[in-house]
């Protein structure tokens, strides 16, 4: 296992706090950081043919937007603090994808904000943080 942490980010204020705490801990441990954003997507949804034909274009746009507006600013902030960081954007089921990314990057810990962007949805289906705690193979720090 590498000396690195994964931070799950989104555009919510809670996510900013998680970043701050992860940075503070990484500094103490001398750990690297992986900044991950998951675009919610399912392989089993139903689309019209026109949507399918434009899917690749939309995917690129989604990734560009997520990387440019959410992930890169966080990576820049971490680097400015003198730490190593890389960003990653991926489509998929949020909690499952974060678990998979944690395994791929071989991190020792995951940081996530407790409340994601949509409060109502998480009340109905359980939040990403709660799902992640249930399924993660490494320790998860949930930042309130």
């Amino acid at each position: 296992m590498k000396n690195s942490f994964l931070i799950a980010v989104d555009d919510s204020p809670g996510s900013g706090k998680a970043v701050d705490i992860a940075m503070a801990q990484a500094k103490r441990a001398g750990a690297d950081l992986v900044v991950a954003y998951v675009i919610e997507w399912s392989a089993y949804s139903f689309n019209t043919p026109e949507e399918n034909a434009e899917r690749h274009k939309r995917r690129e746009e989604e990734i560009d937007r997520a990387a440019g507006q959410i992930v890169e600013p966080v990576v820049a902030k971490i680097k400015a603090a003198g730490l190593n960081a890389e960003g990653v954007v991926r489509h998929g089921h949020p909690a499952q994808t974060l678990v998979a990314l944690a395994e791929e990057s071989d991190v020792s810990q995951i940081f996530i904000g407790r409340l994601g962007a949509s409060g109502l949805k998480s009340m109905l289906f359980g939040s990403v943080a709660a799902n992640l705690v249930q399924s993660s193979t490494v320790p998860v720090t949930v930042v309130p």
């Binding site: 899917r55 489509h91 998929g92």
Partner: peptide, 13 residues
């Protein structure tokens, strides 16, 4: 490659 059209989606369409 997640985020592209999946085999399931192509079949369903």
């Amino acid at each position: 490659d997640h985020g592209e059209v999946s085999h399931f989606q192509a079949l369903a369409t």
